[in-house]
Design a binder for these strands. Structure first.
Lengths: 217, 217, 217, 217
DNA sequence: TATGAATGAGCTTTCATTCAT
DNA sequence: CATGAATGAAAGCTCATTCAT
């Protein structure tokens, strides 16, 4: 089962071409991404960004207007475009691929999301930090993502529920548990970004446990 | 089964008396706690703290020397005293109370830790934010807490394993799963601190799932 | 005997052009020079400098980074460039001009150095103050200047010693005495900068005495 | 010829007893003396003084009112009491001791003043620094000391002038030259206070030169 | 008399942002 | 479009001085 996970960086590149960002502006965005992830938003000065992007201080503001505009330029595609798009893509690939049983389905889901998170560590770190600081983002995301998932996932789950491979719980409760366990495993790894994490092994470990709890007796 | 959970605020108050902090200094600490949790460390100015504490700017620095000193004064007892102490206390109360079965044991653990976290939301929020910014804290804490737990918990788990109520996995794996699920449930609640969370109901929900996965068939 | 003494202010101007300091930055430097000389380094605030230079507070730090950087920008050319350059120039003009006798030679030396000092009072005053505060400067300068002079002066003195116009003492001893007397005359005048000092008359007075002590009987 | 030079520290102690300074206040004064000499007046905080004196911050101000009061308490006896007193004492000891010739007289003077300066390095260093910063002190001192010396010294010099051992110059000119040479030798040693200076040898060296210039041919 | 917590004005420095070139 | 000098508000911090105990 070939799985083409979506890298945010690639989508970024596309986005940049779409909005026709000049080379300099692209390097400004890239520098911001690096520094925000490394030192945090508040501890990064626009002068730092200019230096790393090999660009004048004025150029930093030419396109993105303010420092916050720069942050939004990084976060917004995450929230408005990429996240839902990825989620949609994900759902599509989910519905297209017919899994033999819930076990295969779960393995795919866990492995895919973990790979996605590990591939976009930098952005994720900024995202998490900003979420902690500004919970509104989380709220919006939760509701937006929730609505998107609820519609698509319900029917997906029903298949396995009918086959007796999945416990008959509310779809959101199942999602919360699965994502909770995944998040519990991932967060330390995203934050302490030196450690690499073996996605395959972790997937096996996580699934073994989840299956126990999610399969009806 | 009476359960006296430990509130960090209470320990703070004791700490303050021990180090004999003046009334004004206590209100400085309290103001810092509030503002750091509300707006984050970097977005809180020492002038803000002084104003909220009804104190002059100089007073903020008289005792705590630097703004970072203020942060440390909030975090350090968390890391060096309270966390291990709480963990120790927790283990003692665990060994003293004899639980009828693993189910009761798990309910107690989950309920107790959730209550603790919800009672100390403010400090927790600051703690989480700083952990994201400075992962070294997380590393230290993980190893320190890990060592502490490994010693005491192994024997505790053995009882239930022998009775056939607990799956025969590595103790650390069990802990990681349990805390992972708890964290997964809690973090959104701590961050979006307006929402209250029904500890009793959440405990039931979490335990129901965990027991499925952790009890051998 | 034409004597072209070197004015530090002129060299400053050249330096400024070399490092292409903007007009505003030049006035910052000029204001610092004036105020440091007038009120001393510690008693001059960067706000004072900004006000006198008709410049914003930020501009003071844009180029010179710190207040100490400003001091160094004033002192460094003195130590690293101008002093040795002047000393070198001085030696060259000394060897080029053939003096009829030791008396003429001494008159030239005393007059030239006194004029130089009086022309650069402001810088000298800052220099002296900083030297008192930080003796390391003096040590470095002494050794650096000492090495420079020893080499060149020995041969110059030999001429007059052979003619029987100069006492056969160690060159450094002679220099220490001559400069000691000059310094003894000058320091009060540099410090109390309102008093003008008649260089010609003082030269006569100083030389009359020095000649008595330095000519063999 | 026994020579009892006057140590400022001794006079300080007497002064303290006279004005009945408490033990704590004495240590405050001593700490100020040490720190002002070491780091300069502006770079010494009253908290530093309190710490070194093992005294509370309030105590520093109890007697001396302001930080400047502390400086004056150190400098004033130098200017108003000790300097003139020492000068007077010096003149008395000069008139009491009958010297065989001008050479002996000069040796005594040079040796005595050099010893005095070296024995009171700390106070001298503060004195010099403050003089550079605030030239008024120098002006006052010069005139005060000038008047004092002129009266007493004229007659002293006359003796040697009549004997043909001293050139017939204005007394002030002779004093300026002698003190100029002494100062030229001493200042580097006072500022770079680690170097000890051999008073005896320096006296010989200085006198040898001065005698050449000051004895009539 | 001695203490030391409290004060608040003032200091140096940073930084997002603007604008003439 | 890009530049970088200039800006000025605001930050963290220091320190001489006061005053209730």
């Amino acid at each position: 089962m070939a799985q083409e996970h979506t890298n945010v960086e690639t989508l970024f590149a596309n986005n940049m071409k779409t909005t026709s960002l000049s080379t300099k502006q692209q390097s400004v965005l890239q520098a911001s991404l690096t520094l925000f992830a490394q030192k945090g938003y508040e501890n990064t000065s626009t002068a730092d960004i200019a230096k790393l992007a090999h660009v004048s201080e004025g150029t930093v503001f030419k396109h993105f207007k303010t420092k916050d505009g720069l942050l939004q330029a990084i976060l917004q595609p995450f929230i408005q475009d990429i996240f839902p798009k990825v989620a949609g893509e994900f759902l599509v690939s989910l519905t297209n691929n017919t899994f033999d049983d819930f076990s295969s389905f779960l393995r795919f889901v866990v492995h895919d999301r973990m790979t996605y998170a590990m591939d976009n560590r930098q952005e994720m770190k900024i995202f998490i930090t900003e979420m902690v600081k500004n919970p509104t983002i989380l709220k919006n995301l939760t509701s937006e993502l929730g609505a998107l998932l609820q519609n698509g996932v319900d029917s997906l789950f029903d298949v396995y529920k009918q086959r007796g491979q999945l416990v008959d719980w509310d779809a959101m409760r199942i999602i919360r548990i699965v994502s909770g366990v995944i998040v519990g495993y991932l967060i330390p790894n995203i934050i302490m970004s030196d450690k690499p994490l073996d996605v395959d092994q972790t997937t096996t470990e996580v699934c073994e446990f989840l299956l126990e709890g999610l399969q009806p007796r």
